[in-house]
Design a protein around this nucleic acid. Sequence first.
DNA 1: AAAACATTCAACCCGATGGTTGAATCATGT
DNA 2: ACATGATTCAACCATCGGGTTGAATGTTTT
Lengths: 109, 109
Amino acid sequence: MVEQNSGHLDKVFRALADPTRRAMLRELSARELSVSELAAPHAMSLAAASKHLKVLENAGLVDRRIAGRRHRVRLAPARLAEAHEWLHFYERFWNERLDALARALKEPE
Amino acid sequence: MVEQNSGHLDKVFRALADPTRRAMLRELSARELSVSELAAPHAMSLAAASKHLKVLENAGLVDRRIAGRRHRVRLAPARLAEAHEWLHFYERFWNERLDALARALKEPE
DNA sequence: AAAACATTCAACCCGATGGTTGAATCATGT
DNA sequence: ACATGATTCAACCATCGGGTTGAATGTTTT
């Protein structure tokens, strides 16, 4: 039970550690997009955006389906769920803190 | 509304992208630990473990209180909560998929 | 067939990261 | 005072990451 999906989590968290890539995921949450549509809002070359996309793809966070000369890129949420689940373990720790705060605020003296 | 806590998230996700550091957080979820206690299970020099610790500290994921020659390191869950919250946005996407799967399984034809 | 478009490849640059070792710092126990 | 213990610092090394530019690949349009 030594954290079997560690490999996934490495890539997923690494992919999420960049604001350009997080922004791309947000954009993909609205609709499927092509590579150049994804690149457009980000002040960098198309090649750089293409690299970011590859990082997301390699982490399993997006799917790509090639349709002629355009690549249609979609959000692939499963591995986001894994990351969310990993963090879920710690939920009780921040809840404990909120509870302690709430108790402290309620104390009359 | 352009993702104001982006700076935090960069560091937090980056810190989480390493299995040694994730393991350290797990260990800290059980109890406060010294630097050498944190380093012990990980086959690397103390200096290397100390660097990992600094990454966690810099991301705001742990607190350190110096007590004599030992440093007592504690989990600091607040920024984990931020990361969890960031991922929460996508929850509807993996739920949608599960719903679709459930519907597909229920269909008689 | 040729031109325009969408995307990637390859080579390169530079700063960051993860590791090492050996010395330095500072606190504690005897 | 001294030796031991806990931690960090500094220098170094190899690899990776994010960016660039220019050329290459494959697709569509005319």
